[in-house]
Design a protein around this nucleic acid. Structure first.
Length: 278
DNA sequence: GAGGTGCAAGCATTTACCTCA
DNA sequence: GGTGAGGTAAATGCTTGCACC
């Protein structure tokens, strides 16, 4: 794209008229996510409201009973969801090998899918425990809300890197007493939220750019009209030097200027006439 | 080297559940 | 207590990149 412009020797700069605007539009915070835009936007990741969560040291996480009591949402069904999953098994061998549910119809399309199915198996086991404690409702998938501490740690990790390699995922899952799949899903959803937020910011930025350009266009149109009106007025040429005439050599396309058409011919024209004479 | 295949990872979209006003 | 809106964990399907044959 840019290369084409370079070839033509053109430099079209589509500037947002921030400098024209008394209230300049701050460039959007840059992002690491690829958001296609018609011109380069400054796209660094915006500080997210999710990142304003209270910072809790990792060693302190999960340790205070008070913190657990302060966050009853994580235990909405009267069961510590994390403990439930940990009972099911979050051991390193189990995580990738996982428990295969007798209920899961394993028609593995891909490894990823098979992992999911295995996780489903684990989930089935997990929910079966809930069934035991809840006393029924087998088919419903329980929504497992992460605790504040877990979310905070995940958030901190996300700040460092928005994607995880398998080792990091395992480590984090172990640290947070979650299944690796949960960590994976959380990061996926978190990336989606970031992207959505950034898209909103970009949209707003482009909208204001459009407004500014419209205003600028209106201003320039007005200027053109004013100049036209001025040109038509009888006094326009009275104090004016004659317009410069540009003449181009048809052969070499050299452009020469002359103050007035009736004066000295351009140098290339003289050369041409010399050549024709000889 | 080109093409087919399997796998892993990520993304977009949707669903289901939970919380809160 | 019922209800709708909003938030979010999780499911599903698709795409892409890579390794291997």
């Amino acid at each position: 794209m840019a290369g084409k412009d370079d070839c033509l020797g053109l430099s079209l700069s589509l500037r947002c008229p921030e400098n024209l605007n008394p209230d300049p539009l701050p460039p959007p915070p840059p992002t690491r996510l690829a958001v296609s835009a018609p011109f380069p936007l400054n796209l660094l990741r915006s500080p997210s409201p999710f990142m304003q969560l209270q910072k809790i040291s990792r060693t302190d996480a999960f340790q205070t009973v008070a913190a657990r009591q302060a966050e009853p949402r994580a235990f909405h069904v009267g069961i510590d969801i994390n403990r439930t999953t940990s009972v099911v098994g979050c051991d390193e061998e189990d995580e990738e090998g996982m428990v295969t549910s007798p209920n899961s119809t394993v028609s593995s399309i891909s490894g990823k899918r098979s992992e999911r199915e295995e996780n489903d198996g684990e989930r089935a086991a997990s929910s079966s425990m809930e069934i035991e404690e809840d006393g029924g409702d087998a088919a419903s998938r329980k929504k497992l809300r992460l605790s504040k501490e877990q979310a905070a740690v995940l958030e901190e990790t996300f700040k460092e890197h928005s994607t995880l390699n398998p080792k990091q995922k395992m480590g984090l899952a172990k640290q947070l007493n979650l299944r690796p799949r949960q960590v994976e899903v959380w990061f996926q959803n978190r990336r989606a939220r970031t992207k959505l937020k950034q898209t909103e910011v970009d949209c707003e930025y482009l909208r204001r750019c459009c407004e500014n350009l419209t205003e600028e266009n209106r201003r320039l149109q007005k200027e053109v009209n004013d100049l036209r009106a001025l040109k038509l007025s009888p006094h326009f040429y009275s104090n004016m030097t004659p317009p410069t005439t540009l003449t181009m050599c048809p052969r070499c396309e050299h452009v020469a200027s002359a103050a007035a058409p009736s004066r000295q011919p351009p140098t290339w024209a003289a050369a041409e006439s010399d050549r024709s004479k000889s």
